[in-house]
Design a protein around this nucleic acid. Structure first.
Length: 595
RNA sequence: GCGCCUGUAGCUCAGUCGGAUAGAGCGAUAGACUUCGAAUCUAAAGGUCGGGGGUUCGAUUCCCUCCAGGCGCGCCA
C-alpha cells in the first residue's frame, strides 16, 4: 500500500525532472520496467530504497546523485515520509513517518477495508491445472500441481482478477482402450489363470496399467456384473471378437471410477475446479478426411473466422498421408502431426481445439500448469497458439508454468517411484500420513520451477523444518492472547483509531507494521511472476517477526497503568493475526485458533 | 546428439527481470520456562555463489564455454 503510493509520487517527481531537462519522453519510455523499489534487509538503508537514479543516469546523461537529489526534493514534502536520504553512488532511501505507518495499521484493522490492494486492471484468466490422465489415481507429482494451481487461482482472485479454473480430462485415445483392457484382464484373473499367450494377444503387445487400483476396479466389476460363462469370457477377451460389447464397458467403468477417486482426492485436498473439460467431446467433430478435414475442423472451432472459409489454413500441410502443422517456425525440432494417416486426430490436434475453444471464450490470458516432463511440448503449443491467433483474428496470450518433480524422501532415502509399474505413492497416502495443511504448505515452499524434496518424516514433525506449524502457531498465539484479554475483561476497541495505536513506539513494532504493509505488494507480484512461494516465505517471515516481538515485549501488561500500551499491542497482534489468516487461506491452509 | 530445469553455508533452499556488507531454517555449539502458549526465543559459528572466460562503474544475476545432476526428445497421451 505504501509501496504503491511511493511509486506514484516518485514517478511524478522524476517525470517533472525529466521535463525540466527539456526531454519529451515519458518516464515509461526511458525505463520500461518502471521504478525499481527494494526492501533493504539491512538497517540504515531506509524502509524502501530505489536504485532508479543509477538506472536513469546513463540515459539522461546526468550524474546519478543529481537525479537522486531531484527525486528527493520532489517527494520530501509529503508528510508520509519522515526522511529521504541519498546514499552511496545514488541510492534513494525512504523512511516513512510514524503517522503513515500507523495509518496503514489502522487500515489492516478496519474490517470494512480489504487487506489487499487490487491490481490496476482486472483480467479474465483461465487457469488449467492438474489435468491428470484418468488412468490412475493422483500421485504426489499431481499433488504438487494441484496445490500450486489452486493457490495461484486464489492469489490471482485475491488481487481482483476474474479466474476460471479447469481440469482437462484426457479421456480419448489408445490409453483409454488400454485401461479397459487392463481392468478386463484383471477381472479375468479374478476368475481363472490367464495364460501368457492369451494375455499377450489380448493386450496386442501393449503395456497394461498395473497397481492395486486396477485390481480393485476389476473386483468392483466382478461384484456388480457377476461372472460370465467360459464362452462369454472367451468372446469378451478375444481382441477380434466381442470386444465391441465388453471393452467399452470396462473402459467406461474404469474411467468413471478413477475420475471419481481423483475428484474425491481433490475435494479432500481443498482443490476445486470450475469445470472439467472432456477431450472426447472434441473428437466428435468433424468428419471428413485428409487435409481438408483438418482445415474444416480447425475452422469449425474458429467459427469467428468466416472470412477464411475457403482458404487453406496457414502452416498446415499434407505429407506422407498425414496432416501436419509447421511447428518448426517457432523452434520446434520437427513439424507435428495433426491428423494421422488412418484418419484419426492426434492428442495435439485435440489440444489445439481445446485452446481454440478457450480463446473463443474470451480470456485475456490462458495459464497452463504442466508437469515438467511436458516441457518438450511447449514449442509446438506456442506454434499452435500463433496459428490459432491468425485464424481466430485475435492475439491469444498463453503462459505455461512447468511444475518440476517431487522427490519423496523417507528415512533419509528417496522413495522409488515408477508410474508404469504401478509403484507410486498416491496423494491420498501422503494426505493420510501428513495431513492436508502440511502437504499443501510444503508443496508451496519452493519455486514450482525447482524440483522439490518432500521429506515425509519431517513433514510429520512439528519443527521449524516444517514451517506450516510455525506459521499456524503464530496465529494461534495471537488468538490465545485475545482469549486472555477477554478473560481479563480488557476493553478492545471495535473500531480502531490512530489514538489507540499511538503507543506503538518500539523498533520491533515499527518493523512489524511496515512488514504487514508488504503483504499486498507480495500478492500483487504473483500475476507477473506466477511464483507462489514468495507468499509462503512472507508468512513464515511474518510469523518469525511476531514470535520475536512476543518474546521481547509483553503484550498483556500486569500493570493497569500501561493500558494504553497494552491496547496498542493488542491492535498490532490482531493485525498480524488477520494477515496470517488471510495469507494461509490464500494458500488453502487452515489457520487454527488453537493447536 | 539436441532441448528444458537445476548447481549458493554440513543439509534443504531464498536472493525482488545488473546494485549497498549474499540471507533464512535445519543440524552442530552455548544459553532462556515462578510471568501473555518453549510447536517459541537469544547468541556466536558456518560462503572461491559448480570451474573458467567475457560484457559493465558494478555480476549470484546477462553472454560464451566446460563440468555435474534431473527431465524430455512418437502418426503415444
Amino acid at each position: 500500500m505504501l509501496e504503491r503510493w511511493l511509486r506514484g509520487v516518485a514517478e511524478s517527481s522524476l517525470s517533472s525532472y525529466i521535463q525540466g531537462l527539456g526531454r519529451t519522453e515519458d518516464l515509461r519510455d526511458l525505463i520500461p520496467k518502471g521504478i525499481r523499489l527494494e526492501f533493504p534487509k539491512k538497517e540504515g538503508f531506509g524502509e524502501i530504497s530505489t536504485p532508479v537514479a543509477m538506472h536513469l543516469a546513463p540515459i539522461l546523461k546526468q550524474p546519478p546523485r543529481k537525479i537522486a537529489e531531484a527525486l528527493r526534493s520532489g517527494v520530501i514534502r509529503h508528510p508520509q515520509l519522515e526522511s529521504v536520504e541519498i546514499a552511496g553512488p545514488g541510492y534513494v532511501n525512504f523512511t516513512f513517518s510514524r503517522e503513515a505507518l500507523l495509518e496503514t495499521l489502522e487500515q489492516v484493522l478496519d474490517h470494512s477495508s480489504s487487506l489487499i490492494v487490487p491490481a490496476d486492471t482486472r483480467k479474465k484468466l483461465l487457469l488449467e491445472f492438474v489435468s491428470a490422465n484418468p488412468t490412475g489415481p493422483l500421485h504426489v507429482g499431481h499433488g504438487r500441481g494441484a496445490a500450486y494451481g489452486d493457490a495461484l487461482a486464489r492469489i490471482l482472485r485475491s488481487v481482483g482478477h476474474d479466474v476460471e479454473t479447469e481440469y482437462y480430462i484426457n479421456d480419448a485415445g489408445n490409453q483409454m482402450e488400454m485401461l479397459g483392457r487392463s481392468t478386463c484382464l484383471a477381472w479375468r484373473r479374478l476368475q481363472r489363470e490367464v495364460p501368457p499367450e492369451e494375455e499377450e494377444r489380448f493386450l496386442k503387445g501393449g503395456t497394461p496399467y498395473k497397481g492395486d487400483y486396477i485390481r480393485e476396479i476389476a473386483d468392483f466389476i466382478l461384484k456388480t456384473e457377476g461372472l460370465l460363462s467360459e464362452q462369454e469370457m472367451a468372446s469378451a477377451l478375444d481382441p477380434a471378437g466381442n470386444e465391441k460389447d465388453y471393452l467399452p464397458k470396462f473402459t467406461h467403468i474404469s474411467q468413471s471410477t478413477i475420475m471419481g477417486g481423483i475428484k474425491e482426492d481433490l475435494d479432500r485436498f481443498g482443490v476445486s475446479f470450475d469445470a472439467f473439460f472432456s477431450e472426447r467431446t472434441l473428437h466428435l467433430e468433424p468428419a471428413g478426411s485428409g487435409s481438408d478435414a483438418i482445415s474444416t475442423w480447425i475452422r469449425r472451432i474458429g467459427q469467428a473466422s468466416s472470412s477464411l472459409q475457403d482458404e487453406a489454413v496457414p502452416d498446415v500441410y499434407e505429407a506422407d498421408g498425414a496432416v501436419w502443422l509447421r511447428t518448426t517456425i517457432l523452434g520446434d525440432d520437427k513439424d507435428r502431426v495433426l491428423l494421422r494417416s488412418d484418419g484419426r486426430l492426434t492428442y495435439f490436434a485435440a489440444d489445439i481445439a481445446y485452446h481454440a475453444e478457450k480463446i473463443q471464450r474470451g480470456f485475456d490470458v490462458m495459464i497452463d500448469v504442466w508437469g515438467a516432463d511436458h516441457h518438450g511440448y511447449i514449442p509446438r503449443m506456442n506454434a499452435a497458439i500463433r496459428t490459432l491467433s491468425g485464424l481466430l483474428g485475435r492475439v491469444a496470450d498463453l503462459r505455461i508454468a512447468l511444475v518440476q518433480l517431487v522427490n519423496l524422501i523417507r528415512d533419509g532415502r528417496p522413495v522409488s517411484m515408477s508410474t508404469r509399474g504401478g509403484e507410486f505413492v498416491t496423494l491420498r497416502e501422503v494426505l493420510d500420513e501428513v495431513g492436508v495443511d502440511a502437504t499443501r504448505f510444503l508443496y508451496l515452499t519452493r519455486s514450482h520451477d525447482s524440483s522439490l524434496d518432500f521429506d515425509l518424516n519431517k513433514a510429520r514433525e512439528r519443527s521449524m523444518d516444517n514451517p506450516v506449524y510455525y506459521v499456524q502457531y503464530a496465529h494461534a498465539r495471537v488468538k490465545s492472547i485475545l482469549r486472555q484479554a477477554e478473560a481479563r475483561s480488557i476493553l478492545v476497541p471495535e473500531r480502531w483509531t490512530l489514538s489507540d495505536l499511538e503507543s506503538l513506539v518500539q523498533p520491533e513494532e515499527r518493523d512489524l507494521v511496515r512488514f504487514l504493509d508488504r503483504f499486498s505488494y507480495i500478492l500483487n507480484e504473483v500475476p507477473q511472476s506466477l511464483e507462489v512461494h514468495p507468499v509462503t516465505e512472507y508468512l513464515t517471515d511474518l510469523a518469525g517477526r511476531y514470535h520475536h516481538y512476543y518474546f521481547h515485549h509483553r503484550i498483556l501488561s500486569q500493570d493497569p497503568q500501561d493500558e494504553k500500551v497494552m491496547i496498542g499491542r493488542i491492535g498490532l497482534s490482531i493485525a498480524v493475526g488477520r494477515v496470517l489468516r488471510s495469507g494461509l487461506e490464500i494458500l488453502g491452509v487452515s489457520a487454527p485458533d488453537s493447536m
